[in-house]
Design a protein around this nucleic acid. Structure first.
Lengths: 196, 196
DNA sequence: TCTATCTTGTGAATGAATTCACAAGCCGCG
DNA sequence: CGCGGCTTGTGAATTCATTCACAAGATAGA
């Protein structure tokens, strides 16, 4: 789904005004039937004989993906990865606004990183009441991750994006998405080892 | 597959010497039949009535995933993300050794980051002949990514791990794995928007 | 040795996802 | 207005993945 949006933006950038399922399929390395099935799950966006209006479909995809609104994001763990994420423009561009940084290291608390003060994780619950957070990005070491996630959940935040290389457990009303770089490397290792 | 290895290491750490497909399934939130099917694809590692020998299965998984050997890795693009990856211990721990850093910014070339000199991307082909590289990690802006990938491929490197938020194209004899954080955020956005 | 109890490995059955194939609709042109 | 050329949307057919269910070992204890 995200992929289709990406392709649509490409096509839009190229000045195309309409696009067919065939073109989208070719771009994504799939079949036109697949594209139509995927899209039709959410509604009927195309015109027979013509294809899809790029601008209209783009807008619909944005709405479906929840990208029309802004999301308030905090980053927990201001190590190298957390700091890198804090200043990653890609976030802001798509409406993900970093409004807070948290850490447990007393040496870091109080310092400013990219115009945002680093706060103690203990103040998260209170901060969240004052200014609710939509998504917490977890960028702490594996050994601390589950504890931090528990604190985040206890603070009332219900969207979590984790970069910790372990499987985390959250209540069913909390949405968790994990990017596990260790596993991605292993996937590559497997692919490289097993090509004839 | 990677997941199983992770669980096995947990069980090993807990001192267990054998494990059943049921236990692995419980740990991973799947079914025992699924676990057995997955494993049996690669061979017959268990003993009926007993289960799997943890150490033996761990070793087999490592072999299957190609983790018994060391991998020589370079990082192309020493921005915030590239620098963060360069010093990420998780890489070294699993046998992924960062042996070189590359960038196109003259201000960065020649500087040392975590004991490794940053070199010009132009010297990559030559360096690779002197000391072959297994995997190139791409951590450059989206706008430069395809060009950099082409250079990497032209240098003779055939394993690529990309963090650029775009779809890259490589010849079929090159293995590419992409971690697209923009898409992961969108996935989370979608999940958050569409829960009742 | 024989029996009771486990747990694997794997065909068979079920369920899910993809692909096929085509009627229904839209546009442009004569 | 009617016809021909396109492309969507969607049931039907097919392929792929998961789950079921059980025979084939393996062990432990009597």
């Amino acid at each position: 789904m995200s992929l289709y949006l990406r392709f649509l933006e490409e096509f839009e950038g190229a000045g195309l005004t309409t696009v067919s399922s065939d073109e989208l399929a070719a771009r994504g390395g799939t079949t036109s039937a697949q594209v139509r099935k995927d899209l039709s799950f959410f509604g009927s966006f195309g015109k027979r004989g013509l294809g899809y209006q790029v601008s209209e479909l783009t807008q619909n995809m944005r709405r479906i993906l929840g990208l029309e609104r802004d999301w308030r994001v905090i980053i927990v763990g201001v190590g190298k990865i957390g700091a890198a994420l804090a200043q990653y423009e890609g976030f802001q561009q798509r409406g993900f606004h970093v409004i807070g940084l948290y850490d447990s290291d007393p040496a870091k608390i109080g310092r400013e990183i990219y115009h945002l003060p680093v706060r103690a994780i203990e103040s998260l619950a209170e901060d969240n009441r004052a200014r609710p957070v939509d998504i917490a990005v977890i960028a702490v070491p594996a050994s601390a991750a589950q504890r931090v996630v528990d604190q985040v959940v206890a603070s009332g935040i219900s969207g979590i994006m984790s970069f910790a290389p372990i499987q985390l457990h959250v209540p069913s009303d909390v949405t968790l998405n994990t990017v596990n770089m260790a596993m991605e490397l292993e996937r590559l290792s497997y692919a490289l080892s097993n090509r004839e």
